[in-house]
Simulated assay, not measured.
Amino acid sequence: MSPTHRDVATVGIGGPVGSGKTSLIADLVPRLREAGLDVGVIANDILTQEDADALRERFAGIVPDELVAGVETGACPHTGIREDPSMNLEQIDAFLDSHPALDVVIVESGGDNLGATFDPELADYYAFVISAAEGEDIPRKRGPGVVDADLLVINKTDLAPHVGADLDVMAADADRVREGPTVFTNCKDGDGIAQVREYLSEEVLFA
Rank of each mutant, 00 (worst) to 15 (best):
K188P: 01
C187H: 00
V204K: 04
L205H: 08
E179D: 15
D191S: 14
E203R: 15
R197P: 02
R176N: 11
R197C: 10
N186V: 10
D191T: 12
A194G: 15
S201N: 13
A194S: 13
G192N: 03
N186K: 01
R178M: 09
V177Y: 06
F184P: 04
Q195C: 02
G192K: 04
Q195S: 11
S201T: 13
G190L: 09
D189V: 05
P181W: 02
R176W: 11
D191H: 11
D191N: 02
K188W: 06
T185D: 02
G190W: 03
T185A: 09
R178Y: 08
Y199Q: 11
R197W: 05
T182V: 15
V204C: 10
E203Y: 11
I193A: 03
F184D: 07
S201V: 07
L205N: 10
G192A: 07
R197L: 14
Q195L: 14
D175Y: 08
D191Y: 03
E203K: 13
S201F: 08
I193Q: 05
R178S: 09
V196Y: 03
V196K: 00
T185G: 08
D189A: 09
V183K: 04
T185Y: 07
P181M: 03
C187Y: 00
S201K: 09
Q195P: 01
E202Y: 04
A194C: 02
T182C: 11
D175S: 14
Y199D: 02
Y199I: 10
K188H: 12
Y199R: 13
L205D: 10
S201Y: 04
L200V: 03
V204I: 08
G180E: 12
N186T: 13
D191P: 00
S201E: 15
G190D: 01
C187K: 00
V204Q: 08
D175Q: 13
C187I: 00
V183A: 10
R197D: 10
L205Q: 08
R178P: 05
R178L: 07
V204W: 01
V177N: 01
G180M: 06
G192M: 06
D175H: 14
E202L: 12
E203M: 13
L205F: 06
V177R: 06
V183I: 15
C187R: 00
N186P: 00
K188T: 11
L205V: 11
G180W: 03
G180N: 14
K188G: 02
Y199W: 13
G190T: 00
D189R: 05
V183C: 07
T182K: 06
T185C: 12
D189T: 15
A194M: 06
K188Y: 03
E203Q: 14
V183M: 08
V183Y: 06
D175P: 01
